[in-house]
Design a protein around this nucleic acid. Sequence first.
DNA 1: ACAAAAGTGTTATCGATACACCCATGG
DNA 2: CCATGGGTGTATCGATAACACTTTTGT
Lengths: 221, 221
Amino acid sequence: MTNSTGPRNPDAAPVVATILVIFGIVAGRLQVLLVHRSAEPERDRWALPGGRWRGDESLEGAAHRNLVRETGVSDLYLEQLFTTSGLDPQHPSVAVAYFALVEESKVRLREEEAWLPAWHPVDDLPALAFDNNRVIEQAVRRVGAKLDYTNIAYGLLPEEFTLRQLQTAYEAVLREPLDRRNFRKRMISTGLIEAAGGSRREGAHRPATLYRFVSREPVFL
Amino acid sequence: MTNSTGPRNPDAAPVVATILVIFGIVAGRLQVLLVHRSAEPERDRWALPGGRWRGDESLEGAAHRNLVRETGVSDLYLEQLFTTSGLDPQHPSVAVAYFALVEESKVRLREEEAWLPAWHPVDDLPALAFDNNRVIEQAVRRVGAKLDYTNIAYGLLPEEFTLRQLQTAYEAVLREPLDRRNFRKRMISTGLIEAAGGSRREGAHRPATLYRFVSREPVFL
DNA sequence: ACAAAAGTGTTATCGATACACCCATGG
DNA sequence: CCATGGGTGTATCGATAACACTTTTGT
């Protein structure tokens, strides 16, 4: 979880780090941003991005800072997941996990040969460093549950979107197909989205009405 | 949040602490265990119990250890809530909050003049140290939500109990009256509880059937 | 006129809610 | 026999799920 170079004292005070599960809908699938570890421990494995916490900022601030560093995006949804200890067997360590929802088209990945940040589909992940697979699984479950009673999907979508796009995002997170008509009714009846006024032609067929989220702050039903 | 005795370095590595929201049904009301702070900071205010984390144990282990110290109980439900930073403005600090559900009748409070642990009804709390009021509020909401789709109420009740006791626990957490008949049907239809075989006479009326939880490990519906 | 996705409405089913009476016991 | 809480059944309502046809556009 750290990339320090010098030796460290095994009896030292605990290391506090934040780790990030960054979700995006890429190519219609739910994907997560991973970096490649080029240093020990767990060298040469994929892992969640993150970084050591400096005591001069809030934990959420640290998570947000790392997120901006990895994606260039600052408009997003960020929520704490949980905290674990003992990730690094060498030293007393605590890792605070967050998940974030970002609009993939706004993301500009860091181009750094050492870390190689890249999207990976959540339903086709390699064995990750530390217990990162478990963290991602929990995050997916949490997001899926919250889709039912919040508007957090706004984090995954652009300002204006078609109902089809929205449904694709839902289906990618929930990993199950949804009925198109019932989905439309449910979404509109929640009052979380509204027609944006325009429409978008996509191909040789009828154009789709554009919608937007009434609020781009978290709302609970 | 700590009761360390030696001086500390303001530039030192972060202090990691666990804090505990311990719930019990006392006198038919949802109450939380508080201790009285006799040391700075926040001297002479009530606060949630907790303690500094030693790196040689898991965070959950540390929370559990503190819980046993405060209540003498080790059979219980314990779950992580969230993690905050900056509770103690003096030093970089991180506090990992847990909540626990304990059966009040098994609790033996520590008798220590300096800390005075005592039950306080959650709907009648004083202004607590740090942001402990907010932590408790979150914990109550979380427990209330989980009553709907888990069996975690087992933590609040003895091995065998009447439906009235169970309903009282639910009502104390949810802060709203429930229909007796519908409650019974719902509880039994979940399959989370079963008749224990006996009954209990309480007064000048028909005895109540005793029930038990089928499992005293967490179960999700 | 055909292909392809958008848009719309009805029905059936299930779960949740509201609600009233009889039962067992002690005094 | 009366007071007290325990135990049971039914009718209604609303939400969810299943399901098929018409509309608009480009080719």
